[in-house]
């Protein structure tokens, strides 16, 4: 594994070094450099410090670990691979991701998991340990969004308007169904044991990665949200 000191490097220089090394790499002293590992399909990366916007955009198979916080647009349009953030993330994490897994130890900003989709064997997974901001899972078309609410200092597990425009996939929130205001066009239910089986492997990965007690995480009430197909978002049109 190659070590790259990012101090005093601009994002283009840093990404060039990552591009040219053709091997796994650890980036130290990262301080907001953008677009790290954008579109990468091979090799794995460890980032020490704070990664800048669009970390792992269009990611296609690599694994990225950030030991620190990450900024906006982590995993934008990601197709495959894994991203672990040992801290908090900014806005729009996992925008339009089609595959791969994103794990965030802390909390996420606004618009996490917007327009996530799934296709055949591709099913994007996002697990957020803390809370999520407003517009969580807006336009969600597929995949799984899980928010655990482990940060007890936060009053709400999610901000306003979660699941607006949801038309596919599932969302799990580690809270009671009546504690969150949802749009009228989704089904909100208490998650059954069978429901939880679906997310257990990902919770397990989360807990191992971030050294969290798995039984404590699972020993709580979960809410599962799915789109209400009987009441979809569609406009009534008449041919003119």
């Amino acid at each position: 594994m190659k070590k790259i000191d990012a101090e005093n490097l601009g994002y283009r220089e840093l990404n060039n070094l990552l591009h040219e090394c053709h091997c796994d790499a650890t980036v130290t002293n990262c301080l907001g450099q953008r677009f790290i590992a954008a579109g990468k399909s091979s090799y794995n990366y460890v980032i020490e410090g704070i990664s800048g916007n669009a970390l792992g955009a269009y990611l296609n198979g690599s694994t990225i670990r950030v030991n620190g916080n990450a900024q906006d647009a982590v995993g934008d349009t990601m197709n495959a691979g894994k991203i672990f953030i040992n801290g908090n993330v900014g806005d729009a994490v996992g925008y339009a991701m089609r595959g791969g897994e994103i794990y965030v130890k802390g909390s996420a900003g606004y618009r996490a998991g917007i327009h996530m989709k799934a296709y055949k064997e591709k099913k994007p997974i996002m697990v957020i340990g803390g809370s999520a901001g407003s517009f969580l899972g807006e336009y969600q078309a597929g995949g799984l969004v899980v928010v655990l609410g482990l940060d007890k200092s936060k009053k709400h597990i999610v901000g306003n308007f979660p699941c607006t425009g949801m038309h596919g996939g599932k969302m799990f929130l580690r809270t009671a169904p009546d504690s969150v205001d949802f749009t009228g066009r989704v089904n909100v239910n208490h998650a059954s044991k069978e429901d939880l089986e679906e997310i257990k492997p990902y919770i397990s990965t989360f807990c191992k990665e971030f050294d969290v007690d798995e039984s404590e995480v699972l020993n709580a009430e979960f809410t599962v949200v799915t789109p209400d197909t009987k009441n979809p978002y569609k406009q009534m049109y008449v041919a003119n």
Binding site: A54, D72, Y95, R111, I114, A141, G142, H167
Partner: peptide
Amino acid sequence: MIPEGSDAISPAPHHDIYSIEDLRQLVFS
């Protein structure tokens, strides 16, 4: 790359673009 029978919704805005600076980010990504 979406399942058969699933609606293909293109939102009116790009939800990660609210400014020229955001656009610049998509351009450079």
